[in-house]
Design a protein around this nucleic acid. Structure first.
Lengths: 234, 234, 234, 234
DNA sequence: TATGAATGAGGTTTCATTCAT
DNA sequence: GATGAATGAAACCTCATTCAT
């Protein structure tokens, strides 16, 4: 006995490219997702209540359950909304690289990643930050279902990118690669999930838009250097 | 069944095999802190309930409020327990470096930090992980009181270390230094706050103790290289 | 994934193999009543949600309110659909008896009732079970409006049957009659409202149709004997 | 990781024999159970809200979860509170019968059951009614966990009684016995679960206590006769 | 006639905290 | 110090219903 009819949980809404915050004419589920992204990014998932979300989105409290089934459903929906475009953009970028004559170098790969991240960021002000927080959460032992959700939906596509990365770091042992990969991920995840706070610290007075491009431009050479540093004891 | 005097609170001390690490003779507040560290590290602060903590510590639910005033008080207490030794160890390390003839290099400074982190880790299995999570939290806009707490108690001592670090990266602009510092912090915070999960991923079968030393040994050259990479566009 | 027009309400019609009985061409309100009967019978009235009903009937959630005004309206509708034929059949049966030369005996009356119940059962698989549950509910102090509804629409016709019954149990005191009547009603209501479960218990392996006739055939002599047992202390 | 400490859900409270309704000095969990019994009996389980229960018991809303873990826990507790004494009393009665010279007859067995039911009734005004409603519920396909709960805790003891009953109805086929048993159960369950309503109908003006003894005294000969009626077609 | 979206009321449960002992 | 019970606030979620289309 199905508990339907309700909208198909998980991948519900069509987002307009509109970036101005909380557009009052946008439709309900879009408004919810945008409000949720902002609050999730600023406070975390558990810390954010459905009341806060629905209040900010200016919709009825029950609307979240109507559109997304549950808070977890909303989180998954939010995740899809940034992970899907991210993977799409990475795939695209890799394809472009593949058509070039020479094999892609480490810098090329990071550039592909950077472009993909920028594209995610341009969907909504907080898409990127919230995505990074999701990836962070996924490493907690108590959140294995989130991990599973991500692995199942995006595992294969992520593996492809990692494969290319590995090709460019052949000089590292398998184990060294594993750890450096996570050092790098730490940089990216920490910086981008806190980017709003960091930008505010960096430019206390200016009230300009966050430019992820600038941050990533700074980050790429640092990560390149880190990945290519001589292995300890060699 | 009919005339039971009262619910059997005695049955509380049935602990899963998970907490063999919980020394039963330690005094109440120590037990609480240790249980809290483990749970905070694995689940996060908000996600961890007082009931879970007191159950794992095998103490009365009200004991936390009695000893620490509130959940926030416990968190601060946990924070102090690792931040104080960390700063002490850094101070010590810097002092030793200062007595040497030459000015300390970047590698020396990172070594000092590494030694300090190892010392924190050796207090309790989860001291380090939970400390890292605290630092992560402190960047959230909604947790400014935590930030304030840390800044007030440890701000000055941290500043000293950062000052030394800056001395060794004079070639970077102020702004570049700011960002690279946070890239580095991201690596450290992410890696160490998830170190249990990462070690489990790295060595799925082995059941040996986590060796932060090993991790840090891998990390230092990577960070060094990152900090010293040529600035973009120069 | 990105630009979905709207949640796919079309995916609502995925029905479990459970509802093969749900004729897809029947009109909306018939489908609703049939689905409601099944669910009411299996779960009870309060336990059954409109969503379950509309999902099983494969109609829109709002259709129930459109066709029946409210959940209570639907329940009353369901009640009528079995109480009316029941009373009709009893009336018919009594008329036939009346045309016979001799006055009707207790067994005759019970046979009339049995035939009427069988007729109700043959309307829909769950008509009878749900009717019995309704009668059960009607005795609860908190459901006096249901009681009132039944009394007003069918009270007189039921009274006629009870009158005949009383004629055949003259040897019992008024009060004894009252109680025996309810003992009997208990047997009927309990057995028939749980008949699906009971048949499943009785014939765990066979997957044949429920034959109320068989059950009633077993019940009649038992009830006869019960009603005619010598009064306690006489 | 245990979710303790909380009282051991399910069999929590010590009941005083006090039958006056809602004694204000009784302890919290007793008050809850008594209020729950009354409301469950009058309205059903799903229909009764925790707010109603705690309001009637004049305790905090959260007290139910504190003492019983959940609404289902409360229901199970209520069940135990009447099923345990019922089975105890039946065991006792059977033992007494066993010590007699001759084998126990059908009437003896029913008398044992009646005495046991009376004893349950004397615990609390609504213990018996609510027990009967529980047994009724247990036959619904959607309540198999309740069924399981009862079977696991009391299945064996009930089976003993049924065994004796079967010994006294050897002339019936297995299948006939099954059905007659449920006819009888229907009488008992329906009558006793609605006994308050029925007594009110029987004696509209009198406001005296319900005498289950009287009802059961009327019921025994009826059931005896029903069980011993000649099998259809023999 | 029918539907998809939305909503207000109210459901159970969880939580940190408090208090008398 | 320590404990068992109790509590108010608020969490997430479900429900029957309504309404514009």
């Amino acid at each position: 006995m199905a508990e339907m009819p309700r909208p198909e949980w998980g991948s519900t809404n069509n987002m307009s490219a509109d970036n101005t915050f909380m557009c009052p004419t946008a439709d309900t589920s879009t408004r919810i997702v945008q409000a949720a992204e902002k609050l999730f990014a600023e406070q975390g998932f558990k810390e954010t209540t459905m009341r806060q979300i629905t209040a900010l989105a200016d919709v009825n409290l029950a609307a979240v359950n109507y559109h997304f089934g549950s808070k977890k459903g909303l989180i998954h929906s939010v995740a899809e909304q940034s992970l899907s475009p991210l993977c799409d953009a990475i795939d695209e970028g890799l394809e472009k690289l593949g058509s070039k004559s020479s094999a892609p170098g480490l810098k090329d790969l990071l550039q592909v990643l950077a472009v993909a991240l920028v594209r995610v960021h341009h969907r909504t002000d907080y898409s990127l930050a919230v995505l990074m927080r999701l990836l962070d959460q996924a490493y907690r032992p108590s959140q294995q279902d989130l991990q599973e959700f991500i692995r199942q939906k995006y595992g294969k596509r992520i593996a492809v990118f990692l494969h290319y990365l590995r090709e460019n770091t052949r000089e590292l042992s398998e184990r060294e690669f594993f750890w450096r990969l996570h050092f790098l991920m730490g940089s990216v995840i920490f910086t981008l999930s806190n980017m709003h706070a960091l930008v505010a610290l960096d430019q206390p007075n200016e009230r300009e838009e966050i430019e992820v491009e600038t941050i990533l431009l700074r980050m790429i050479p640092v990560i390149c250097a880190g990945m290519q540093a001589p292995e300890q004891g060699h």
